[in-house]
Amino acid sequence: MTSTPSHPGGVSVRVRGLRKAFAGQEVLAGLDFDVQPGEIFVIMGPSGSGKTVLLKHLIGLEEPDAGEILIAGKPVRSPEVMSQYRMAMVFQSGALLNSLTVGENVGLYLAEHRLKSPEEIARIVTEKLEVVGLKGTEERMPSDLSGGMKKRVAIARALVIEPQLILYDEPTSELDPLSSVVIAEEIVNLKQRIQVTSLVVSHDRDLAFGVADRIAVINKGRILTIGTPDEVRRNPDPLVEQFLHASFKRL
């Protein structure tokens, strides 16, 4: 099938002049950045700043109005990329298939592409569910799970693919602090184990500064700053400062 990669390890991502408008409203207003193979690149930004739309472009679910996206130097969704690399995305909502059990969801990629025998798939599914702390939930239906559990199943489903590029949309947004730590560890583990390139969209500052090799802060479809966690922390731009240091005062 199209899905046996010949290149182990992560891929580079290059984004140039990426623009997208919906109904005249500009959501991505010219983005340029590079992500190195095997890097964990965190994208932060306020709600509605276009982070999800950016990830959808990176995996080819949306067509840009202008600009280009290169995966390992080739256009995203070109036949070469599709046949040589595996990509996975963890959706903000989980996007589990509601008609399938948790186990079937997690094993879907392997089963549909006939990459493994049913017994092997069952073993891998059990293993990945254990990684995200959901051991023994194979037979449950997604509709019976909490938001955070769905998110973790979605992460397990992405782990199964063993991708060269993995996109996480708010992986910890519905999780308690303890599960968040587990997910953060797994993001780093996965990178160390298979050198995957990871793009993580998150508001979670602890997660961002905990796992990132580099961080980009975007606002209104533009990049405010890109750099290592230390560089971003020291960035004097008032918008960046505000975003990074906003906190509740007792009201």
């Binding site: 199209t2 899905s3 959808k56 995996i59 080819g60 679910l61 599709m82 595996r86 990509m87 996975a88 995305m89 959706f91 909502s93 996007a95 589990l96 298939l97 509601n98 008609s99 879907l108 990629y109 549909e112 592409h113 693919i161």
Partner: peptide, 20 residues
């Protein structure tokens, strides 16, 4: 209804990201 709800709840997007 079935395919429409899969569309609305991004299940079809998820399939496409899995190359299905």
């Amino acid at each position: 209804a079935e395919i429409g709800s899969m569309r609305v709840y991004q299940e079809i997007d998820a399939l496409r990201t899995m190359n299905i």
